[in-house]
Amino acid sequence: MPEIAIIGRYWPGTSPLHRMDPRAKLLMSLAVMAVILCAQGFVGLGVCAFFTFGLFVLARIPLKAAFKSIAPLAFIIVIAALLNIFFEQGGQTLVQWGFLQISSKGLYQAAFSGLRLLLLLLSMSLLTLTTATLDITDAFEHLLAPFARIGLPAHELSMIMGIALKFLPQFVFEVQTIYRAQISRGATFAKSPLKGGFQMLGSLMVPLFTSAFRHAETLSAAMDARCYHGGPGRTRLHDLRFGSRDRNAVFVLSGVLAAVIAANLLV
């Protein structure tokens, strides 16, 4: 089984980006996405691209790793680009082949939306690349806290999310082991689901589910043993604090937004 790539797996580091407050990072990454969506032309996108790649340099994450982390989603970019090529018509017709035709406007749109999607994915992956999962769930909990007043179980939601994310690598590992064990017993997973492949799939999924239940029981016992009750009044070892880094990030991002708007208006 090929190793399952995990999108935006945490890339440990000590860059300013890594040390930003996770709440700020979560909000800023949403803001960055909004800025990228604001761009209406290649110049605007160019500004965004410059900014995004700058962030990767700042975070000291090699571009190769960045692209690798979004590789599983590359098909979305390709599909979006293809749809644009064939369904966006206008301008000069470049290729005519049966009912398919490729126009200059289609090509332009394909390149534009492809690039925009690429930048969106890269900037999204930057959040998870520079933030440990536990910090993300903490930030998530803090940002949801105001809604707790109207009955939203913010803490529980983020705890569920955190546990699910934490166990992902464990389950990937276990699926690999189960897969190998069943292969050793002559299983073939290339079969079509209709020709006995369901049993093959069952031989993977049933052990995976039983192991998930086993882990859940052990984990709940372990949390119980540590007097976890999840209720209010729970304190933390590392309190989240906004700092000058986060303020600077707001300034930089405002600058980029201004530049993008200027590019939209002027070009």
Binding site: A181, I183, S184, T188, S203, V206, P207, T210
Partner: peptide, 21 residues
């Protein structure tokens, strides 16, 4: 490799975790 799998039986650690039927 797939021909010899019936001849070389491999029992993994904690094989009971792979029961499914």
């Amino acid at each position: 490799a797939s021909r010899i799998r019936g001849k070389v039986g491999l029992v993994f650690q904690y094989p009971e975790h792979q029961l499914f039927a």
